[in-house]
Amino acid sequence: MDAFDWKHLSRHGGLVAFAALLLINILITPNFLQLQTLFVNISQVATIAIVAVGMTLVIATAGIDLSVGAVMAVAGAIAPLIFLSDFAQANPSLGLFLAIVVPVLVSVVCGLFNGALVAFLGVQPIIATLIFFISGRGIAQVLTNGNLQTFTHPGFSYLGTGKILGLPFQGWLVLVIAIVVWWMANRTMFGRRILAVGGNENAARLTGTPVRRVKLGVYAISAGLSGIAGLIVVAINSASDAARIGNLMELDAIAAAVVGGTLLMGGKAPIFGAILGAVIIQLVKYTLLANGVADEVALIAKAAIIVLAVYVQQGRKE
């Protein structure tokens, strides 16, 4: 009987935690049931959620991507350089288009670099992505001479402040990305192969799975999504600070994926779990801050959630 309840709880642990957090907030947090609260939380969670989706795919192949924050910084540094350029001032629409597409493409290239190290040179993922984790932020700062770039650009800022049907644009973006990636992971051959590579790489190779291309693919997707997240951060702030964009994002994204039920040994890709994980982490942060608990304490609470999530996962494995 005990065992049954435990299993039940662990399978839906994320939802239970989410419901509990909502309830606690409704009871103790002033003004929790206000649209403004919803907006703030959506816009803050969106970037973590987007990066966590990519991270989930990488972890599903038994890899890990430490470079996501650095990639965000690179994308975030390039965008203002483009839309503030003379060319973009002369061609505003094309300039805006390029300011979004080019950084994302550059991010994808960064991801291909990570993927190539892992897939072709056999470097361990944690080391391979550590390389860009260190150098990427440096590149971003070199690009901007280490300056804070501030700007006023309503078109670009829409990414961070726009609303569709009354809800923040990036909230919708998260939803679209999650649906597309979920579909890919569960309905396409590429998705199936990601899980096969993570589940048993030898078996995957022997059944004709192009293991290297699959790995290359997940790191590219992860980096591309990080690039998008980087653009959103810059758009929200109307400023680009290469030293700070996406700082510690890799840890938030990994935490969200783990809380969402991703196994670090690979073979599982719960996309919506990762979104839920991101939301839970965000809500805990918000709960503590809204109730006057210091930021530092919020970090400790975040760690506690991760420990709890891993503990529940251990229980689920048996």
Partner: peptide, 27 residues
Amino acid sequence: EGIVPDMSVRENLTLALLPRLVRRGTI
């Protein structure tokens, strides 16, 4: 070198067959 332990019997059985199961991009 054989089973992908956490995958279902269905997914394991069709692992090598996948390319032939794809219709318009999906399995």
